[in-house]
Design a protein around this nucleic acid. Sequence first.
DNA 1: GCCCAGGTGGGTA
DNA 2: TACCCACATGGG
Length: 220
Amino acid sequence: MKQTLLSIYKQLFKHFGPQGWWPAESPFEVIVGAILAQSASWKNVEKAIANLKRERLLTPDGLLAVNNRKLARLIKPALYYNVKARKLKAFMAFLHDSYGNDLNAMFSQPTEKLRKELLAVWGVGPETADSILLYAAGKPSFVVDAYTKRIFHRMGLLEKNPPYESVKKFFEVSLPKNVEVYQEYHALIVELAKRYCKSKPDCRECCIRRFCKTGMHASS
DNA sequence: GCCCAGGTGGGTA
DNA sequence: TACCCACATGGG
């Protein structure tokens, strides 16, 4: 099984090239983006981030100080703006209370300890926690999303709708424990899904099958 | 008009 | 554990 996931990774990388995720200017921006990206397209998240930058609020103190109403208005493009304003506030309260707004202090914690702390923050679930660990902190914590479950189920490598933690473990034990590999793999899965799934999750000729036909075999 | 979307939390059985 | 719904909106 080690070979399967690793060889798929190599073929995706060869086909699509390095993705260079996460598209952000700083680790803090990664964290804010990870929360805003919940069930939202990246294009809209970018608009919300741009609004926060324009108002010079894209800092721990800035987001702590701004009132919920204004914050919600600024992040409106990212959908679910009221609930996401609360989530950003909850994270900023955690960062302030636990680490005095010192991201490096937070990142220097052991991965598992920090993961538990992040999951305890209201509004941070497993995918958001792992995105923060992998792309902001640079820790080897594999990110699982709906695309990952869907595509690897279609490939016959996963059950239908498997639990998050079991998918994460499956990838982590099958791949070399390497931050760059984890970062690229998740980004490549998203790229594959975006190109071939569009917004039709049930299409028959979708995802990996088309990738196999047009990409994998042809280019390798 | 209907269904879905890179997620999470809260409720119910 | 496994579902359902809310959160909000735009695009296919």
